[in-house]
Design a protein around this nucleic acid. Sequence first.
DNA 1: ATGTGATTATTCGTATACAGTTTTTGGAAT
DNA 2: ATTCCAAAAACTGTATACGAATAATCACAT
Lengths: 235, 235
Amino acid sequence: MTEAKISTAAASGQSTSGQIHDVLMGRIQRGELVQGVRLVDTAVAAEFGVSRMPARDALMRLAHEGYLEPTTRGFVLPRLDHEEILEIFDLRRLLEPRAAAMAAHGLTEDELAALGGILDDARSAMTEGDPERLFRACEIFRNGWIAAVSNASLRKALQRYMTQVQAVRMMTFADKANHPLIVAGNARLYEAFCQRDAVAASDRILRFVFDGETAYLAAHAAALKEQSGSTARAG
Amino acid sequence: MTEAKISTAAASGQSTSGQIHDVLMGRIQRGELVQGVRLVDTAVAAEFGVSRMPARDALMRLAHEGYLEPTTRGFVLPRLDHEEILEIFDLRRLLEPRAAAMAAHGLTEDELAALGGILDDARSAMTEGDPERLFRACEIFRNGWIAAVSNASLRKALQRYMTQVQAVRMMTFADKANHPLIVAGNARLYEAFCQRDAVAASDRILRFVFDGETAYLAAHAAALKEQSGSTARAG
DNA sequence: ATGTGATTATTCGTATACAGTTTTTGGAAT
DNA sequence: ATTCCAAAAACTGTATACGAATAATCACAT
């Protein structure tokens, strides 16, 4: 059961620590790690059947990337600070319009077709009420068009905030009322891509980020209320 | 001579690897590392009088932060090709106007006074024909106002491109004709800060970045010509 | 003299070990 | 029963060591 050895999957040609890093990041991004769980290098090492060093390297790297937070007793999921999330919305409003414009120009026909397929998948996932699949589809869609941004530095900058984007998604996806808005926003963006309309793409992603912030703020307010309610019950 | 031990300076209360990281990043940002030098963990470890592990951690962290590039034989400065530098000018045009606007709002009177002093220093350095001091003053000026950007994520994003900014500066500062333009640009930005004029600050930094790009392109063209000339002489 | 192959050297990645530090736990006294 | 102190456990950071991979060098053959 332990000693899982990673060679089976995700053998992306990297070093062991790189593979552990990727596996852990996948778990984090899929929300498989509950808040408050402490990741300790020895435990991770034991799980993957390696020594402490690769596990430690992976954990520290994840911490530096912002996916984990180092404490005196293991690594934990970072408490996503409300202020920081708002800051990143600000950053995204600065960067993503330009990125979308470049994608509208740079996407190949094949990539466009692939994005269309993913969008269809997202739609059906929504109608079938499969939030998990919808979530994945949206992630793939976003990664897809960002990959077509010809400015590599801009691309990397955007990918750096993927974690936060993911964390926000995790919150806003909880409310099913947001699902149609998300799909519609992506669809409008996709339309602009298809028409090679850089201006429209730019405007629509900006609108999309604003809408995302609104949805996040609502989810945040709801979470606060919930929290205070449960605290009241507990006390 | 070797075995320098870092405890004297920069004992920022961090771990050894963290201190090595900071020292090396300082060297990189100040341009003290010449292009092509290979940083090897054993050598770094020897310099700081520690084992390979902290040195290796620091190097790998710098690499994944983008300050160094891992090769099969040590870490080297990422050679910024022409395209990438232009990409980063693009990014700076997206980010710095907003940042300057926030700085215009967030700078304290003391910080403003300090910036004014640095600007005076830059001016006198220019009149005295001291490029090194001018270079340093500009770096401090930039770091100064960026530190006042209240959006921490935006601040970190800007600091991430400091290396590239530094490299570009290194090229454009070589031509003394650029010095008055640089000082004038910073002075205009400073004026906007003093007047708490976020719009002016935003406009002026944008203009400044454009001018920087122009100067860089000129320097690049000159370097190309020079290179082909020397190649012709050599061959 | 030049190209090719083998040997050497360097460097990376991981394993194991040890010391320092902090948290937790157990016990005793009030 | 609670609080305080001490002992133990756990975790982190660093040191040392070893195997594997890759680049560099050198010898040899053409």
